[in-house]
Design a protein around this nucleic acid. Structure first.
Lengths: 198, 198, 198, 198
DNA sequence: AATGAATGAGGGTTCATTCAT
DNA sequence: GATGAATGAACCCTCATTCAT
């Protein structure tokens, strides 16, 4: 029983890891299910025991990978003992941007696929991942002593701004390398936050 | 001669128009070259006389369609006689957002495919389109009497923020409908601009 | 012991009932063994403990279902107290046609799969079903006081004529609805019988 | 032009002939499109230039093959100079039964697939085949000097009776070989016709 | 320049069957 | 006896691309 379930978990992990490897290396559209199962070392039919199709495995991967990135950033923030909402937000962004700069294929994968809808449903409010982002995000706001006109829109705008500008600057260094972008980006985020304080 | 060239232009236009229609209706990946040539009323081989492949025709379409949107916004701004750089930028954004709200398939097509690289190369500095965006954009800044730390990054951040937030709000009304987003967005853009003034 | 056998019988019945449900709903070729075991609530391997393959369960179903139809017709005839061979045959046909008109999926299933060979082997001479059709059929002929040149060919022709004409008329109302066919069919059957009397 | 069309006709014929060969040898369900194109010596994609799927080629084959059988019977009848409606019908049946006895795979293919609907639409009223069955069938009735209560039902019943009884007797000699069936069958058909005269 | 018939590799998906538990 | 995870061959179908006309 434990043995079988263990085996199943191994198979699913092998498929997830292989799929991530291939998706980032050659893109989702150039990756066939045959590619995945061949490299994962399982039979083709086995894929369909665990995932509905290519887009099912993609969504599960996004949630998994994005959750890892957020969790790392969060724990780094706690270790660093950052205080103050704005500084915390900037720290998180800085850390995440650094992670993605180190791992460009991960950046490419997440940026191209992480919509606000997936972010909200798969990460924020879903128990699918073993970390509760909603609580992190709520407690940060609550403990800040500050209030905002519309926190969700603020978070939304920050995420979209960071995500889309970093995508271009990290991957293509265009219009500038991410190192150059950072000061402007951080300043802009602070502006956005200040602008929405009540 | 003129007749033949005319004929060629007609074929190319038919292919471009049909491709746009199908790309927006059913997505690029679901659109085959067969679909395009069938609906355009030309032979399959003819496609390859004008375009290298599906992605070649897509890039040419983006430049064409995005240029139309920008040009409309620009001429509306001139007609309205807006003065002052910030107000001009907000007017342009407002107009473009309205255009894309009216034409969601166009929004979808542009947002999913318009990278900063394509924006810069195909629209800004390219003579491919019959309108010189670079001059528009330069003259607006020059006549404003204001100077910015890094105008290109400013434009880049504004475009990315607007593009990515509107995409989600217009198409999915998530996290809020675009109507609700607008005041926050406009205010944020003003913050970004003020923050980068020298 | 009795408990285990009971359990086995239950499993086999669940598989038979589910298979019939699916065969009639979606056709034999569209029904997979997975479909059957899922709906029946048993494991996939269990199927192979009771049946060789899909066609084995089909044949057993035909015998079971056809026998039910014949038995109902026969008992209705006895209750109605019909006398006279021709009238008895017409009554049986009429009753069976009515049953199949009420239950078109059953008609479809039987008609498409009931060959004379199966009819003879699985129904007429087999002890597989708990009713002895051969005796019914023999006694009807014997008590009629009439003799026929070749009773088996007569029965064969009647069954084939009824089966094939009703199939089209009940399911497709083509060339006519079964209601319109009936008088011609009954008259024709009487002709066939009269024509083969000795 | 003529050359290309000629080539196309050859390809289509190769596919039709190969499909018939395989359908009759190993059954439709055991025949894959790969089998057909391999044996026909064309590429897989070519199949789909001529037929929608396996069932499209089957229907076209039925019409083609059944029309050949009917046409042969009809011309034999004319050569033999048979007169009198009943004798003509019996002659046609006899001839067709003989053809199908000689060619059991053809019998199997036609019997299993020829429904009244296909018979009517593809053979009787369709210009798809180059012979006009409707006119043959009409003129035979008209020139007979006899009238029937419902000619279509009469034809329907005759065809269904002949088709279903011969199927079993020719292929399985069950309940009797077709040679033995014939006198009873012919007599029965005459009975059916007489019974429906007005 | 324009055509469109032909290609065939490769896509996603299904499913009867096996066998270790 | 019962299970159901795993298999992998086989299925149908698509489609970018070529090339003789």
């Amino acid at each position: 029983m434990g043995k079988i379930d263990n085996n199943k978990k191994q198979k699913e992990d092998a498929l997830l890891n292989t799929a991530f490897d291939l998706f980032t290396k050659q893109g989702i559209h150039k990756t066939s299910i045959s590619d995945i199962v061949n490299q994962a070392g399982v039979a083709k039919g086995t894929f369909y025991l665990y995932f509905k199709d290519k887009y099912d495995i993609r969504n599960k991967l996004i949630a998994k990978k994005a959750s890892q990135v957020f969790r790392l950033a969060d724990s780094a923030m706690h270790q660093a003992g950052i205080a103050g909402l704005e500084d915390q937000v900037i720290f998180l962004i800085d850390n995440i941007v650094d992670q993605l700069t180190e791992n460009k294929s991960l950046l490419n994968f997440i940026s191209k696929n992480l919509s606000w809808g997936i972010f909200k449903n798969e990460l924020l409010y879903s128990g699918a991942t073993d970390i509760d982002f909603y609580n992190i995000y709520s407690s940060i706001f609550e403990h800040s002593g500050k209030t905002y006109k519309n926190p969700e829109i603020l978070v939304f705008m920050i995420i979209e701004l960071v995500n889309s500008t970093c995508f271009s600057c990290i991957l293509y260094e265009d219009p500038v390398p991410v190192k150059e972008l950072k000061p402007y980006l951080f300043e802009s985020v602070r502006q956005l936050m200040k602008g929405m304080e009540t």
